[in-house]
C-alpha cells in the first residue's frame, strides 16, 4: 500500500474497499501485496519449497543465514484468519523446514516467529511465518523472561479465560469446570455437582498421558537439560544430541515433501 496516506485518503480508500466485491477485493490486495507478487512469480525469489498452498523462500534481509519465510499462498493479513486445516499444513511444512535447517545448516535451534498487527512488528500485509536458524549467543530475539506476581496472573486469568471460552464456541461448561472444581474439591468436595463428569474425564486422560511411555531419546535430552551449569562444549553436545534425537521422528515427514 502507498506509504503516506493522509487520514482522509485512508478513509476514502476504506470506503472504496468496502464497496468492492470479494473478487475485486482479492484482486486489489494481490496487486498491492509484494508477497502475492512473489507467490505469483512476478517478483523473483529464492524458493526452498513450494506446493499449491505454501511457499517457502529465503528472506533477502535475513537475521541469519538460512532465515526462511513461510508464506500461505492465499492472502491473509493476520494469523487468526487462516483456516485451521490450512494452518495445520503450513506448520507441518514449517516443522519440516525447521528440521531441514537443523540438519543442513548445523544450527542448534530454530525460532518460529509471527507478528499480528503493526505494534507487534508486522511489516507486510501478507501473513508471514518466520523461521530463524538459531545459535547460542546470537543477537536474535534477545528477550528475557520475568516473574509475574500471582495477583497479576489472577487478573489476566479472569480477563482472558471467559473470553477464550467464548471464542472456543461457548464450551464454557465443559471447559471451565475442568480446573474450577479441582481446587474446590480439595476443600469442599460437595461443591462439584454437575461438573463431576468432565472433571473425571480430564483426570483420566491426564493420568493416561502421564502413564504413557516417553521415548528414550527425549528422556536423555531432558536429563541432559537438568544438569546445570553447562559449559559451552556441553551445550553444543546436547544440541547435537537433540538434533539426532529428532532425526528419526520427522525423517518421514521431511522426505514426504517431495517424492
Amino acid at each position: 500500500m502507498a506509504p503516506e496516506l493522509t487520514e482522509e485518503q485512508r478513509k476514502e480508500l476504506e470506503e472504496k474497499l468496502k464497496q468492492m466485491s470479494p473478487e475485486e477485493l482479492k484482486e486489489f490486495q494481490k496487486k498491492q501485496c509484494i508477497f502475492c507478487q512473489i507467490i505469483s512469480g512476478k517478483v523473483p525469489s529464492q524458493k526452498i519449497y513450494e506446493d499449491n498452498k505454501v511457499l517457502v523462500i529465503l528472506d533477502i534481509n535475513p537475521a541469519a543465514k538460512g532465515h526462511l519465510l513461510i508464506l500461505p499462498k492465499e492472502h491473509y493479513s493476520i494469523q487468526p484468519q487462516i483456516p485451521d486445516k490450512e494452518q495445520g499444513h503450513l506448520f507441518s511444512i514449517a516443522k519440516n523446514m525447521s528440521h531441514l535447517l537443523l540438519k543442513g545448516l548445523k544450527v542448534s535451534g530454530t525460532s518460529l516467529f509471527a507478528a499480528n498487527g503493526l505494534v507487534a512488528g508486522q511489516k507486510a500485509q501478507h501473513f508471514i511465518l518466520h523461521l530463524l536458524p538459531r545459535k547460542e549467543g546470537d543477537d536474535i530475539l534477545k528477550v528475557s523472561e520475568k516473574l509475574i506476581e500471582k495477583e497479576m496472573r489472577d487478573k489476566i486469568y479472569s480477563l482472558v479465560a471467559s473470553k477464550f471460552n467464548e471464542v472456543m464456541g461457548g464450551k464454557k461448561k465443559t471447559v471451565v469446570p475442568l480446573k474450577g472444581p479441582k481446587l474446590i474439591s480439595e476443600e469442599k468436595p460437595k461443591a462439584l455437582d454437575d461438573s463431576i463428569i468432565t472433571d473425571s474425564e480430564v483426570t483420566d486422560s491426564a493420568v493416561s498421558v502421564i502413564n504413557n511411555p516417553i521415548p528414550e531419546s527425549i528422556i536423555a535430552f531432558a536429563k541432559e537439560k537438568q544438569t546445570k551449569p553447562k559449559t559451552k562444549a556441553k551445550l553444543k553436545k546436547s544440541a547435537e544430541k537433540q538434533t539426532q534425537s529428532e532425526k528419526k521422528a520427522s525423517l518421514d515427514d521431511i522426505a514426504n515433501l517431495f517424492k
Binding site: 494469523q79 487468526p80 525447521s98 537443523l102 544450527v107 542448534s108 535451534g109 530454530t110 525460532s111 518460529l112 516467529f113 509471527a114 507478528a115 499480528n116 498487527g117 503493526l118 505494534v119 507487534a120 512488528g121 508486522q122 511465518l129 530463524l132 538459531r134 545459535k135 547460542e136 546470537d138 530475539l141 489476566i156 480477563l159 482472558v160 471467559s162 473470553k163 477464550f164 467464548e166 471464542v167 537439560k225 551445550l235 546436547s238 544440541a239 537433540q242 538434533t243
Partner: peptide, 23 residues
Amino acid sequence: SIAIFDSLGCQGTNFLVQNGLGA
C-alpha cells in the same frame, strides 16, 4: 490470539516458538 485481542485490549500479538537450546 483472538481472545487476548478482545480481553486484554492489545493491538497486536506475537506468535513465538523457541525450538532447541540454540533458540
